[in-house]
């Protein structure tokens, strides 16, 4: 008995030793900066320096100033729109690859879906500028076919362009988890549903979709969480109207040198994302358990 306990202790020690390097790495590079951010958010901004006085003023400012509230709300709406658009567009693609592509060709299809990642994110955003711009590909094409007489101006430098660009950028992140969930569905379940009298469409609603939900939930979170904090896209294609919370934080930190307010905004944004994600998981919980 004693020997067994000793053995377990030695095993535990060995385990700790094994996880120590990544644990230290994570602490230094993830937790420490985050803690610093939390500390900053409670300090007072002086001119050119940070005064070490504890205060809630930054949070008060972040949550009550109509400018900040407006940008925060817009960020939320944009990322929700992006999430809905991305997942709705990704599902048919994932479904097609999983159900209608020959098994031997599936890897080629997945490979093709990841091609946009070969170029940098920045270049992809710039390309959308080329497509959506006043003299861009889309306007030129529509004019050439005589569908419009003058260039459309609502395409670029507003919320639309931010949503389109982000939805495109995050498409593979949504396609892949949904594809994996669809792949895991035993095809005989779909036959069983039809055998029990349901049409293909009803089978989709009663069997395919509920079983694909873990993938959909993952896709929603993977798209929603990073888009709310996206900086590059709103900066390049958003115009003044398309500003999001990350641009605001950047402004506070680098332009106005107000670290405490920037930190409070960042922590607030994080909190909002966390709360919304938690609520979302709560509502989709029943789809996530009970399936193998």
């Amino acid at each position: 008995m004693a020997r067994r306990a000793q053995g377990a202790e030695a095993e535990a020690k060995g385990g700790l030793l094994l996880i120590a390097p990544p644990a230290i790495y994570a602490l230094l590079l993830l937790l420490a900066p985050l803690l610093l951010l939390v500390v900053y958010s409670f300090l007072t901004d002086g001119y050119l320096e940070i005064v070490r006085d504890f205060t809630f003023a930054n949070y008060h400012e972040a949550w009550t100033n109509p400018l900040y509230r407006g940008v925060m709300l817009r960020s939320l709406i944009v990322s929700l729109l992006v999430t809905v658009a991305t997942v709705l567009l990704a599902f048919p693609v994932a479904y097609f690859v999983s159900f209608h592509v020959e098994p031997s060709r599936k890897s080629t299809w997945l490979f093709l879906i990841t091609i946009p990642f070969w170029t940098s994110y920045l270049i992809r955003v710039f390309l959308w500028k080329v497509i959506l711009g006043y003299n861009g590909v889309l306007n030129a094409g529509l004019m050439k076919f005589g569908l419009i007489s003058e260039p459309l101006t609502f395409l670029l430098y507003n919320t639309n362009s931010v949503v389109i660009t982000l939805a495109h950028a995050y498409a593979p992140f949504a396609i892949l988890p949904i594809f994996v969930a669809l792949e895991k569905i035993d095809r005989s379940l779909l036959e069983a549903s039809q055998d029990l009298g349901e049409s293909r469409i009803v089978t989709f609603g009663r069997v395919t979709l509920p079983l694909a939900m873990p993938g959909v939930v993952a896709a929603v979170l993977i798209v929603f969480i990073p888009t709310i904090g996206d900086y590059v896209t709103p900066q390049l294609v958003g115009g003044p109207e398309g500003r999001m919370v990350a641009n605001l934080i950047q402004l506070q930190y680098l332009r106005l040198d107000n670290y405490p307010l920037g930190s409070a905004l960042a922590i607030s944004a994080m909190g909002i994302v966390a709360v919304i994600s938690a609520i979302f998981l709560l509502f989709t919980r029943r789809y996530l358990k009970g399936t193998k």
Binding site: L189, E191, L196, G197, V207, P210
Partner: peptide, 20 residues
């Protein structure tokens, strides 16, 4: 007659029990 309209029912080899 499509599968869902036939007067037959099947017990599948994998049983095809809906896991959800």
């Amino acid at each position: 007659v499509p599968a869902n309209k036939r007067p037959t029912n099947m017990v599948f080899q994998s049983y095809a029990i809906f896991p959800h």
